[in-house]
């Protein structure tokens, strides 16, 4: 099962390191990363495979949001279906 992780916030050092360490710790495999800086704002989008994760999607989403708070970024981990539904005809 795939999920999309988005990380948005003020750019600073070590964001990718912290987020990928968190995902590795949860058994989540990163399949694709896209990253961009928009007017000083860092925006990263990851496509991840959560089939091997130790936790349910809802629990992962909650821990990802908590990690976001602790590093001052907004982090969402969502089922990929929501993006498929909204952006693909």
């Amino acid at each position: 099962m795939h999920a999309v992780v988005t990380v948005v916030g003020k750019d600073k050092t070590g964001i990718i390191a912290k987020v990928s360490a968190f995902l590795a710790g949860k058994g989540v495999n990163i399949e694709d990363i896209s990253q961009t800086i928009l007017q000083d704002y860092f925006a990263m989008i990851m496509l991840v495979d959560i089939s091997g994760a130790k936790e349910e999607l809802a629990a992962l989403a909650e821990s990802a949001a908590e990690l976001g708070k602790s590093i001052g970024m907004s982090i969402h981990l969502q089922h990929e279906a929501i993006f498929n539904a909204m952006h693909r005809v």
Binding site: V4, T6, V8, D32, S34, T36, A43, I45, L47, S74, H76, E80, I82, F83, M86, H87
Partner: peptide, 16 residues
């Protein structure tokens, strides 16, 4: 992979 602007648009719709 998704278009990153589409993904960010969804996040913006929900957050703001």
């Amino acid at each position: 992979m998704f278009n990153k602007y589409d993904v960010l648009e969804t996040i913006e719709m929900i957050e703001r």
